[in-house]
Structures are given as C-alpha cells and as structure tokens.
C-alpha cells in the first residue's frame, strides 16, 4: 500500500485541522501508558508514583538489574527459552504450511477439495475443543514440561491460518512458470523448491514474523505445558514475577515488561509495512 494522500472528501481546512487534532489526541492517550511504562522502568522506585512526567528526573538502569535477577532463574535464561521456541515455531510453520499450501494450489490429487474444506473447517474450530485430549496425549507421551507440545504441532501445520495466507499468495504466481518447468522435465519437488518458494519470499516473511510474534506472546500453552522455572518462557517468567513481587517492586516489574515487549517492538519497526499489509489484505486477527 503506497501513501496516497488524496483528499478523500474534499475536507475544508478547518475540518481537517479538527481531524488532525483528534487523531493526535487519540494517539497520545493510546501511547501514554506504553511511554509511561518505558520511562518508569528507568526511574528510581520512589519517583515512579510521585510524578506523571514521562521524563525520568534521575535516570537509572537499576530496575533492570533487579528485575533480571529477580527470580531464582535469570530472565536471560527465559528469554533464551522463548527465542528457541519461537524460532522453532517459525521453521515449523514455514515448512509445513508452505507444503500444504503447495499441495492445495498446485498439485492435483484425489480428495483435494475434501481436505481443503476440512482445512478451512479447522480454522473455525476453537482450540478449546481439542485442548484437554491434546494435553492428556502429550502427558502420555511424557512431553509435559518439555517444549515439544509447543513446537511439534507447528511442524504439523496446526496454524491453518498460515496455509490460507500462503494459498492466497501461491495462486497469484503465474502457472506458465510451472508449465514451462514441466516441459523441461521438472517434477513437483523441483517446482516447489525452484519456482514457488523463491517467488514467495514476501508471504514467507509475513508468516515468519507473525509466527514469531504470536509464539513469543503466547501465554496459554506455556502456562499449561511448562512447570519448571528453568523451562519458563519470558511471558511465564513475567507472570511469576508479578506474583513474587506483588506490588513491592514496580520498577523491576515494568523493566522486565518492557524487555519482553522489546523483541516484538523491534520486529514491528523493521517489518511494519509487511505486517500492516498482511492485516489489510487478509483481515488477520490482531
């Protein structure tokens, strides 16, 4: 989407000034809590609640030091856990979903429409319907308290949404390319690797970034599957930290909150256009 600053409805200057003021006000109110969180994380504890100012009078990174080692396991360890899980989820989603999307758009096989309809059906089914048997199954496998229940399903294309996203994109790749390759004797495997995947980097990137962010942010699955604090993700660690510090060390809590959002924020800044286009074209949640 390119920036087209067309004057949509021929607004008068006054009206436009009003719109501008309104939008600015809304952005300020929306951003204020976030800015407050970041600035408070750099304030000494006694300054956090004594002023609503966004600029710390005394700048200190003390809260980060207290927070980082605030639990029996360092937050660094939990960030590492989160990163490993999120990266594996990215790989799993990219591999399994692109394979499925390729089968649905480019290969002709018996039962394709049937499976396609079922795939759309799974997108509608709330995860709660399968939650308990899945949990019991992973418990049986001895997978509870490991990262396997969080990662393995991604390699089985459980996030059908990404299949859907890739299907939309693959359909736009000209079929002449495949046909030319077939004439040259290329099989389905070669077409997938030499034609489809190389031309699909935009959609693969979108899926990768969303996979990472959603897995990083996920709270529910780690909550039910991970028990030992050494295995916690950053989200679980933060939530444990809330319990541990209660109201006593807001500075450290806000510092760790800021840190858990930071990776998402960086991805957001770098891939902003990709993410927003992804939302605009598919109506993806979040």
């Amino acid at each position: 989407m390119t920036e087209t600053t067309v004057d949509a409805t021929g607004s008068s200057p006054l009206l436009r000034a009003f719109a501008y003021a309104a939008v600015l006000a809304v952005s300020f109110v929306m951003l204020y809590p976030l800015l407050w969180m970041v600035s408070s994380s750099f304030k000494p504890e006694n300054e956090i609640f004594s002023t609503t100012s966004l600029i710390p009078e005394t700048f200190t990174t003390d809260a980060y030091r207290r927070g980082w080692n605030g639990l029996s396991v360092s937050f660094g360890w939990m960030f590492l856990n989160s990163t490993v899980i999120a990266l594996l989820a990215v790989v799993g989603n990219l591999v399994s979903c692109s394979m499925a999307a390729y089968a649905f758009t480019r290969l002709q096989f018996k039962g394709r429409s049937f499976w396609f309809a079922l795939m759309l059906g799974t997108m509608m089914l709330p995860q709660h319907a399968v939650l308990i048997p899945q949990y019991l199954m992973f418990l049986n496998f001895g997978w509870v308290n490991t990262i396997l229940p969080l990662v393995v399903p991604k390699f089985l294309a459980i996030d059908a949404f990404f299949i859907f996203l890739m299907i939309q994109f693959f359909r736009g790749i000209p079929r002449d390319l495949d046909e030319a390759a077939v004439m040259d004797g290329a099989g389905p495997l070669r077409i997938f690797f030499k034609i489809i995947l190389p031309l699909s980097t935009p959609v693969l990137a979108t899926a990768a970034v969303f996979s990472f962010i959603w897995t990083w942010d996920d709270f529910f699955a780690p909550l039910i599957y991970l028990n030992d604090i050494e295995k916690y993700t950053a989200q679980l660690g933060l939530r444990t930290f809330v319990d541990a510090t209660a109201q006593s060390d807001w500075g450290a809590l806000l510092a760790m909150s800021t840190l858990t959002i930071l990776p998402i924020f960086i991805l957001f800044v770098v891939f902003q256009r990709l993410l927003i286009e992804g939302i605009a074209t598919t109506g993806m949640k979040r």
């Binding site: 942010d217 809330v242 909150s257 800021t258 858990t260 959002i261 957001f268 993410l275």
Partner: peptide, 11 residues
C-alpha cells in the same frame, strides 16, 4: 500487536 502479552496486562 502487543495487547495480548503479559507485559501489557501487567501495565
């Protein structure tokens, strides 16, 4: 993008 995270709930 970040609204569902624990950090925002804490905030």
């Amino acid at each position: 993008l970040i609204g569902g995270s624990v950090a925002i709930a804490v905030l």
